[in-house]
């Protein structure tokens, strides 16, 4: 097959992916803080998340799942004013992330509730197969966007935020830094948005060769992998999904050892799991 998406398609994919990463981290921040007992950041994140969802809705009609991704590019061309909307959003949201940090990062109670809670070492993470921000907060610099660049992430200039202690506070800091890095990526992508087609020439009916393939991307919560076995027919023979939430939840036991019961809620919150993804 090898039908790579055209340049413009890849750029828009990157914008959508990283906007999605932002919505995920904002949702996580809101729910995590709500679990720990502060009720205000959750409303702030929902206010700002709404702006992203509006862009998604205008783009493809769906608010949560940007269902425009196809083999070979994107189904829909962007609407008029997409670039302007994204740029406006970037200038809107940058100070808002500072606002969240202002409420929490140096808040004594927040630091006491999260520092040293649910420590996960780098070795533990690798042994348990934990990925995503949880892994990076434990000091392992592993981001599939850099390690196995897909789409055209290798053309963008961004850093991988890494924590040191692997506790809940570090995971918080890593996710906050990732939000800023996402903004950086989106800024670059939207500034250099090329003209051209969004979809490569793909045959109507695809007959993949016999064999198997595993591909994974860096989803907001961790590594999201798809394993496909083909017997040469138009339909797949076997499809398995590696969900990040399901894998990351396995670390709960290790993280809760020696902690108080009241910390369990903080530890579950910091893993950023979606139970629909776990209970399949």
């Amino acid at each position: 097959m090898g039908d790579k998406a055209p340049h413009r398609g890849q750029h828009i994919q990157v914008i959508l992916k990283d906007l999605n990463r932002l919505t995920d981290h904002q949702l996580w921040l809101g729910k995590h803080t709500l679990d720990i007992g502060t009720i205000t950041p959750h409303v702030y994140t929902f206010r700002d998340r709404e702006e992203i969802l509006k862009i998604f809705e205008k783009y493809c009609g769906a608010r949560l799942t940007t269902h425009a991704f196809r083999i070979g590019g994107l189904q829909y061309e962007t609407y008029d004013g997409f670039e302007k909307d994204v740029k406006n959003f970037l200038t809107f949201v940058a100070p808002k992330i500072d606002e969240y940090e202002e409420l929490l990062t140096t808040n004594r109670i927040w630091v006491e509730r999260t520092k040293g809670v649910g420590i996960l070492s780098g070795q533990d993470c690798i042994a348990l197969g934990v990925t995503g921000p949880v892994l990076r907060a434990s000091g392992v610099e592993w981001d599939l966007r850099k390690a196995q660049p897909y789409a055209n992430y290798k053309n963008f200039d961004f850093e991988i935020p890494v924590g040191q202690n692997g506790d809940t506070y570090d995971r918080y800091l890593v996710r906050m830094a990732e939000m800023r890095q996402s903004l950086r990526i989106i800024q670059q992508a939207v500034d250099a948005l090329p003209e051209g087609p969004i979809m490569a020439k793909v045959p109507k009916v695809m007959k993949p060769p016999v064999g198997e393939v595993y591909h994974s991307i860096e989803a907001p919560k961790g590594e999201l992998g798809y394993f496909i076995v083909s017997d040469g027919a138009t339909q797949h023979y076997l499809l398995r999904v590696l969900p990040p939430s399901f894998v990351n939840l396995q670390a709960l036991d290790t993280m809760c050892r020696g902690q108080l019961v009241a910390d369990v809620i903080a530890v579950i919150g910091t893993l950023d799991i979606v139970l629909g993804e776990v209970d399949r």
Binding site: T33, I39, I109, E112, R113, A262
Partner: peptide, 12 residues
Amino acid sequence: YRGTFPRYRFDQ
């Protein structure tokens, strides 16, 4: 206070 602070843990 209610709008700003997270909740303390009991031992804290």
